[in-house]
């Protein structure tokens, strides 16, 4: 899990999207997801993918990290498509939709610190859920590091090699058992700390404003345009489908421009 790299990118980045308002980014994410969900046209989905690739290029996000995370659901989407799609084109659209939706979510997470991402969820859920979300994110870092150290220790002490799968499986299971005990002790320590510090519920997350309201507005408007095109192509599919080839041209132009600008500024 690349959670450390995700956090680093969200907190240390300084691109135009990093300095945009978290609310604007989350609204844009919802609109882009709406666009992905609405369409079944492969070229429209491909256009959304090109638009998001242009955003990744313009924000200097690590391409391997962003596209790697976004491509992960493709593994499961391929299995789902192969097992249930009525034809090859529909199967392709299913996989593309999964990847494009994931890319939109990943872009937000890579450019927004996690407390700001979870803040809207705190507004619509009980306080225990919102607080537990923040604790979970923190605990994941600790457990990942602990698990990595445990596995290294197990491999060194047990002399595990590829030729002993049963011994390896037994050692890995015990490492996971050790991780479970550690996690419970971690919870106990957190409880003691929270009791000492007077926690009574509701960890408050401070709201962050974007640097430029105009930029935030343009971000939301751009996403709204994407949704509008997606809805139009669905509602007037019979008339507009023959001209679907036009839809990817604009995001392709934007992507080429972003690449050219990045190349010039290197």
């Amino acid at each position: 899990m690349h959670i450390g790299s995700v956090d680093e990118s969200a907190v240390l980045g300084r691109s135009w999207l990093h300095t945009a308002s978290p609310n604007a980014k989350l609204i844009s994410l919802a609109l882009m997801l709406g666009a992905v969900v609405t369409t079944w046209n492969a070229l429209v989905v491909a256009s959304l993918a090109l638009l998001l690739m242009a955003v990744v290029t313009s924000t200097d996000l690590k391409p391997r990290l962003a596209y790697g995370l976004a491509a992960y659901p493709a593994i499961f989407a391929v299995v789902f498509a192969l097992s249930s799609a009525p034809n090859a084109l529909t199967g392709t659209v299913i996989v593309l939709k999964a990847v494009v939706a994931a890319l939109a979510a990943v872009i937000v997470v890579l450019t927004t610190p996690y407390p700001q991402v979870f803040a809207p969820i705190q507004c619509i859920t009980p306080s225990v859920v919102g607080d537990a979300l923040l604790m979970t994110y923190r605990s994941t870092f600790l457990l990942l590091e602990k698990f990595s150290n445990l596995m290294r220790a197990v491999k060194l002490r047990s002399g595990l090699t590829a030729g002993h799968p049963i011994r390896t499986a037994r050692a890995t299971t015990r490492a996971l058992g050790g991780l479970l005990l550690y996690s419970f002790d971690l919870a106990q320590r957190d409880y003691d700390v929270m009791r000492l510090r007077g926690y009574e519920g509701h960890l408050r997350v401070g709201r962050v404003r974007g640097l430029s309201p105009l930029r935030d507005a343009l971000l939301v408007i751009g996403s709204l345009v994407a949704l509008t095109v997606s809805v139009l192509m669905r509602l007037a599919a019979t008339e507009l489908n023959p001209y679907s080839w036009i839809v990817p041209l604009i995001p392709l132009t934007i992507l080429i421009t972003a690449i050219a600008l990045k190349w010039r500024n290197r």
Binding site: T136, S139, L179
Partner: peptide, 28 residues
């Protein structure tokens, strides 16, 4: 929401870290 109401008997300072680490374990 219903689960949060039903779990109000347990101390929130014990619930929240426990939820956090067990959810993190599942995530890992």
């Amino acid at each position: 929401t219903v689960a949060s109401r039903l779990s109000e008997r347990a101390d929130i300072r014990r619930k929240v870290p426990l939820l956090g680490v067990v959810s993190a374990l599942v995530l890992v």
